[in-house]
Design a protein around this nucleic acid. Structure first.
Length: 521
DNA sequence: TTGTGTTTTATTGCCTCC
DNA sequence: GGAGGCAATAAAACACAA
């Protein structure tokens, strides 16, 4: 099925562009495009041409792909924002502050939601990750942080994206992540959007500002956990220091607070199904990745370079909208031309580790291999051994260029036993994640320093004891279990897969679920 | 195997900016 | 007016359930 599609693509690529029939891009092409897209959402014509040449596509195709990709992002953001909006509207104070944001004066009328900003502006200023709502943060994690920091590029944007999305949704909830990032040693909330405040010298205004406030409020709310009371004093943006015992709940930390499970990024209603869509998408390319044809593998090695070295984002973040990055400083947009396997490693590795229905299916295809958790070679498991050499090369490369920090993390990941009942899978995930980080970040270490600063912040966050890979899984599961005990959701099994968790009854939001639990307590 | 739903790709038209 | 981008639309490819 996929093979035929890929062959079809290959054939068409060879035979030229005359064929009007739409043809799917090969996983390698998609991956490369995604990679590039993560770096540059608005590539210049030169970039497009170069990329097109590298991928054997036309500049028109590349342009169109980027266009559609942006639309897709936008759509996803919209969905997520909508889902998040539901969350916000479901809880008192947040609702008060959140309501009416949509009518915020900033932004054009032509676009909705995040279109309030010029996306190019947003991109260039790096606002995505710092000033957007949780949904946006999630989005950012999926698209930039995910692939640039953790190196988990996706096979497709969605595959990695969705997977990342899932990871963050439940395991590393951006809400949980960000506050942790910002927590001072005293566990008091540092100034809002510290990174954005210091990073680009940018201060959000209007809609973004309020959204950032909501983020902060929600973060505090989350940290307060059950101590948070809707009937309490409203949380202000200029947070007062938290009471000394705010985080000293004798029994549970904030992470395990019911509120945690109220992940605003998780669509609370089945009809809001970006996740589902992404699941589908991801699995789509999971399948691709598990069934690479020799042609594809050859192609990716021969034609595709890793974009890891592709160092534009720094310039991008500095450049004004109209000052788009060019290739001038990079003769080759695909420098290094290292084995592009890392693209697939990243994507596949990440893609292999989740519980989506389709992933289950994929695992089944690979028998027990997909369940192995014993070595870094798990990457190759998903290629059914087709890419051993390249795999090894890529891995070795990753280790050669690895940042000690990453090494440390990787070791930690490998050594830390998973607490999850999905342990086999999780472990694979963790390892692959670490490796993906290595392979993806290693080459970038030579350049692109500035861009990594903010990522390193996130990296550090992920290095926190409570939020490292293993802990992440704990975080994933425990809140669920917690909810099982408390939430009036009958029949909800403790360790439903993520999808199931997402499909919890939507008659009330998870936020409400959490708060109901809290109030019951 | 088939029908249905989702995702991706391609095309076209409109808008904005220079 | 041209270029670039966005949105709408159609159609193909694909996934999945019956």
């Amino acid at each position: 099925m996929e093979e035929s599609g890929e062959l079809h693509s290959e054939e068409n690529k060879v035979s030229g562009e005359k064929n009007k029939k739409r043809r799917l891009k090969t996983p390698a092409q998609v991956t490369a495009l995604e990679k590039f897209y993560n770096e540059h959402k608005y590539p210049t014509e030169e970039m497009k041409l170069e990329l097109a040449g590298e991928l054997g596509l036309t500049e028109k195709q590349v342009s169109g792909w980027f266009c559609h990709r942006r639309l897709k992002d936008k759509r996803l953001l919209k969905d997520e924002a909508y889902a998040n909006g539901r969350q916000e509207h479901s809880s008192g104070v947040i609702q008060d502050r959140g309501s009416g944001l949509g009518q915020d004066s900033c932004g054009s009328t032509k676009h909705g939601d995040y279109r309030l900003l010029d996306p190019k502006e947003v991109e260039s200023r790096g606002l995505y990750s710092h000033d957007f709502s949780a949904a946006d943060l999630t989005y950012e994690h999926r698209n930039r942080y995910t692939e640039n920091v953790s190196g988990m590029d996706d096979t497709s944007s969605e595959s990695g994206s969705s997977l990342q999305y899932k990871s963050f949704s439940q395991g590393q909830d951006p809400y949980n992540l960000e506050p942790s990032t910002y927590l001072t040693p005293n566990r008091a909330m540092p100034p809002l959007n510290p990174k954005s405040a210091t990073n680009m010298g940018y201060k959000p205004s209007g809609y973004l500002k309020v959204r950032g406030e909501i983020d902060a409020i929600t973060s505090v709310k989350k940290q307060i956990g059950r101590n948070y009371r809707e009937d309490g004093p409203p949380l202000s943006v200029e947070f007062d220091p938290l009471p000394p015992g705010a985080f000293e709940d004798g029994t549970e930390g904030p992470i395990q607070e019911p509120y945690y499970s109220a992940n605003p990024t998780i669509p609370s209603s089945p009809e809001i199904s970006p996740v589902k869509r992404q699941l589908s998408l991801s699995s789509r390319y999971d399948s691709y990745n598990t069934k690479f044809s020799p042609q594809d593998l050859h192609m990716e090695g021969a034609e595709l370079g890793s974009f890891h070295d592709y160092d534009f984002q720094d310039k991008r973040s500095h450049q004004h909208v109209k000052q788009r990055p060019t290739f001038h400083s990079h003769a080759n947009p695909l420098p290094g031309r290292k084995s592009s396997l890392d693209l697939y490693e990243d994507s596949t590795g990440e893609a292999s580790a989740h519980n989506s229905k389709k992933n289950h299916r994929m695992v089944a295809k690979h028998g027990t291999e997909g369940m192995r958790s014993d070595s870094a070679s798990n990457h190759s498991d998903h290629y059914e051994g087709k890419v051993d050499v390249k795999q090894a090369n890529s891995l070795s490369h990753g280790y050669e260029t690895i940042n000690p920090k990453n090494t440390q993390r990787s070791e930690f990941v490998k050594s830390k036993p998973s607490n999850s009942k999905r342990m086999p899978h999780v472990s694979v995930d963790s390892e692959e994640r670490g490796l993906s980080i290595m392979t993806a970040k290693g080459p970038k270490l030579n350049g692109d320093q500035k861009g990594r600063i903010k990522y390193q912040d996130l990296d550090r966050v992920r290095m926190l004891p409570n939020e490292t890979m293993g802990g992440e899984q704990v975080m994933v599961d425990e809140p669920l279990q917690h909810n099982v005990k408390q939430a009036p959701v009958a029949g909800m099994q403790p360790l439903r897969n993520r999808r199931s968790a997402l499909e919890m009854p939507s008659s009330f939001s998870e936020d409400e679920t959490a708060e109901t639990s809290s109030s019951l307590n």
